[in-house]
């Protein structure tokens, strides 16, 4: 199982990776990207099973990435991990096809609740 973590903060990419492990998904093969543009190239090169993406990033934001994926017909399971979990953003994410929006700060339990319906129960 390949998971692409997209965040402009290296610290947050590490925290997401660690939380995946704590939630029981430590067996996932982790790929990383620093912004939406880099993620788009990574997705085209090697389609991941799930994208965990920040919203607010330089170059290309998370929602711009998801919109671009939709426009290009690239069907990817996609969820946001962001510090800005407003109702408007949740609705926009849902309309673009995001499966969930996890608001920072989060816990392993939060990850488990969001990821189990998408990836199945942790091993």
């Amino acid at each position: 199982m390949k998971v692409l973590i997209v965040d402009d903060s290296r610290a947050m990419r590490m925290i997401v990776t660690r939380t995946l492990r704590q939630a029981g998904y430590g067996g996932a093969e982790i790929r990383e990207a620093e912004n939406g543009a880099q993620a788009l190239a990574a997705i085209r090169a090697d389609k991941p099973d799930l994208v965990l993406c920040d919203w607010n990033m330089p170059e290309m934001s998370g929602i711009e990435l998801l919109s671009t994926l939709n426009q290009q017909g690239l069907k990817i399971r996609f969820g946001f991990v962001t510090s800005e979990g407003t109702d408007t953003m949740r609705e926009r994410a849902r309309q673009e096809g995001a499966l969930f929006l996890i608001a920072k700060p989060f816990s392993a339990e939060t990850f488990g609740t969001a990821l189990t319906p998408v990836l199945g129960p942790p091993s």
């Binding site: 903060s9 290296r10 510090s83």
Partner: peptide
């Protein structure tokens, strides 16, 4: 690395207050 971490701290606190 220090600046990256601190930026994320401000981002998380600011993002939650913005909400």
């Amino acid at each position: 690395g220090v600046r990256d971490v601190l930026g994320e701290v401000a981002n998380m606190i600011g993002g939650n207050l913005k909400a």
